[in-house]
């Protein structure tokens, strides 16, 4: 298997943990794995990304533009920002809920989230929209947005892993008291 995956969002949304879960799934299957992510000052409310490269043949942890199989966008504008990395027939899974930047609240910059979603639909063949607000409200925790989005990627078939792979990773990595919540989050897209 060879997969190039990008997770993107705003600092604090849980992209790093989601990237760890995918990496663990790759390690469990003994696949070569490289990742890179944003750490440091940019995490304070800035745009963040994780690049994940699975399988033989990759050297650097950064995915070149136009090579990603899958982008999981935790936020509409951030998904558009990373779109140049997607390969022509790639898949985008995107949370519809925007995170408004301080600069937009202050009126210093414009941000129209609906225009971002429209742009994605016009320019990407495989777009999967996730109602992250609805999902986290139904599940009762805003912390599991990342696992809901992973579940959506799983459903799309573009993730390259099976539900069993991810269930195993949750079992290994999530504390017992949050396990059931995360399991429900993983299957939310399928069961909604």
């Amino acid at each position: 298997m060879r997969k190039e995956i990008i997770l993107c969002g705003v600092g604090g949304q849980g992209t790093i943990l989601a990237s760890r879960l995918i990496a663990s799934a790759a390690m469990n299957r003994d696949l070569p794995i490289l990742t890179a992510e944003t750490i440091g000052m940019a995490q304070r409310g800035g745009s963040v990304f994780s690049h994940i490269r699975i399988g033989e043949g990759a050297g650097s942890p950064l995915i070149p533009k136009g090579k990603a199989d899958l982008i999981i966008g935790f936020e509409p504008g951030e998904a558009v920002r990373q779109l140049p990395f997607l390969k022509p027939d790639g898949t985008i899974v995107v949370n519809k809920r925007p995170v408004m930047p301080v600069s937009a609240s202050l009126g210093q910059s414009a941000y129209n989230p609906q225009a971002m979603l429209d742009y994605l639909r016009q320019n990407v063949r495989h777009v999967i929209l996730v109602d992250g607000d609805k999902a986290t409200a139904a599940l009762g925790s805003s912390k599991v947005l990342n696992v809901v989005l992973l579940g959506a990627a799983l459903e799309s078939g573009a993730l390259g892993f099976s539900e069993e792979d991810l269930q195993k990773v949750l079992q290994e990595r999530v504390p017992e008291r949050f396990l059931e919540l995360n399991r429900k989050a993983l299957s939310w897209m399928r069961n909604r």
């Binding site: 705003v10 600092g11 000052m41 940019a42 995490q43 304070r44 409310g45 800035g46 745009s47 533009k65 136009g66 504008g77 951030e78 558009v80 920002r81 779109l83 140049p84 022509p88 925007p98 995170v99 408004m100 930047p101 301080v102 600069s103 937009a104 210093q108 910059s109 414009a110 941000y111 129209n112 225009a115 971002m116 742009y119 016009q122 320019n123």
Partner: peptide
């Protein structure tokens, strides 16, 4: 020449800020 995308709408500006 790689496939070029049309110009996207104005992207959100997110300089790091105090939490």
């Amino acid at each position: 020449a790689p496939e070029t995308l049309p110009e996207p709408p104005a992207l959100p500006v997110r300089p790091p800020v105090l939490c």
